[in-house]
């Protein structure tokens, strides 16, 4: 129904056999006659069938043999877009029990135009095939393959931030078809994240010598901590007691486990006998006790002692020679006898 323009009198026709298409009356000589596609009209008859007013700029719309002005035609017959509310002129998309401009009918999730690729009605929403598959997969607790858009029934293969069926890919090294166990080798330093990532089958991946974390059993792509004869992700190398990562702080090893300073000393007792504080630096160990550098001293006179100092044991405490010699004689005698008895027993 394209608009037809043409308000021109036809001088070749004789006035006697010309009649107005609307009122069937003849025309007066010199009267203006409207000719539209071979039909003739009085100017006052060539009006909108609805509002009986002349067509503005001569533009009219014809529907079922009647002519309408633009406004009345739209009001009476033209569809309104369900999205923008404007009249739809030209191609009308009839879908979801409504009319749409082709550019207004889009997938509710990804906003792609649906006019030419078809759509699926999903819970009263128009969705493209892709989004529909995704929604369905999520509903089933599964992933949708980012390549074929099918649901991934088994474990998905993760690659460059998306999920796929493993069988769409082959190992970069040996070309074998991959499955979910394939490993993504992250971009080398200097390349943008993800861009250089490649997929390898587990066999080829392991042959590349990429360290595996002793805690999570996953490959370590970034900084590697090597301790206790294993490799660790920085954040997975933790104190066996409090499970906080060492993050480069000193750790202490005991029976194949690593501990932070606090818990190592708490559990294994390297507290100074005098100040009862964790011994940070060198440790003096004697008589089943430990001392920090500041406090390894004679227990009687508090005189500092060194690694080389000789001392007597008195109640499992160190006593320097000078002090021991100042002990009461009878005490020294008893201590000597006790000492000799113990020696006898152990030999």
């Amino acid at each position: 129904m394209p608009p037809v323009t043409g308000v021109t009198p036809n001088p070749n026709m004789s006035l006697g056999n010309m009649f107005c298409s609307r009122c069937d009356e003849g025309f007066e000589p010199h009267e203006k006659i409207v000719n539209s596609n071979g039909e003739l009209w009085h100017t006052q008859c060539f009006v909108c069938a609805q509002c009986f007013r002349a067509f503005q700029d001569g533009i009219f719309y014809e529907f079922e043999g009647r002519k309408y002005c633009e406004r009345d035609f739209h009001v009476l017959f033209a569809p309104c877009c369900n999205k923008c509310g404007e009249f739809v002129i030209g191609r009308v998309i009839k879908a979801m029990a409504a009319n749409w401009h082709p550019s207004c009918f889009r997938c509710e999730l990804c906003s792609n135009e649906l006019a030419d690729c078809g759509f699926i009605r999903n819970q009263n929403r128009a969705l493209c095939h892709e989004c529909n598959a995704k929604v369905k997969a999520v509903g089933l607790g599964k992933y949708m393959c980012n390549k074929c858009h099918g649901i991934i029934d088994d474990a998905p293969l993760r690659f460059r931030g998306e999920v796929y069926h493993g069988y769409h890919f082959n190992c970069t090294s040996c070309n074998v078809e991959l499955d979910s166990t394939a490993r993504e080798v992250k971009s080398r330093p200097g390349f943008a994240a993800n861009d250089m990532n490649e997929l390898y089958c587990l066999r080829c991946h392991d042959k590349m010598g990429i360290p595996i974390c002793g805690a999570c059993r996953r490959p370590i792509e970034e900084r590697v901590v090597t301790a206790l004869g294993k490799h660790w992700h920085v954040e997975h190398f933790v104190c066996a007691k409090c499970e906080k990562p060492f993050l480069g702080h000193r750790h202490y090893e005991k029976r194949g486990l690593a501990y932070c300073e606090t818990h190592y000393h708490q559990l294994f007792g390297n507290l100074c006998f005098v100040c009862n504080q964790v011994i940070g630096g060198d440790v003096f160990t004697a008589l089943n006790k430990s001392w920090c550098v500041h406090h390894f001293a004679c227990s009687v006179c508090d005189m500092k002692m060194t690694q080389k100092s000789k001392f007597y044991e008195y109640d499992e405490k160190p006593v320097c020679k000078k002090c021991y010699e100042r002990f009461p004689n009878e005490l020294r005698r008893r201590l000597r006898i006790s000492h000799e008895n113990t020696m006898k027993k152990t030999t």
């Binding site: 005098v274 009687v300 006179c301 508090d302 002090c323 100042r326 002990f327």
Partner: peptide, 11 residues
């Protein structure tokens, strides 16, 4: 001596 931590009066 409110700051005294160690008092050794041995012998």
């Amino acid at each position: 001596l409110i700051n005294l931590e160690i008092l050794n009066l041995a012998n």
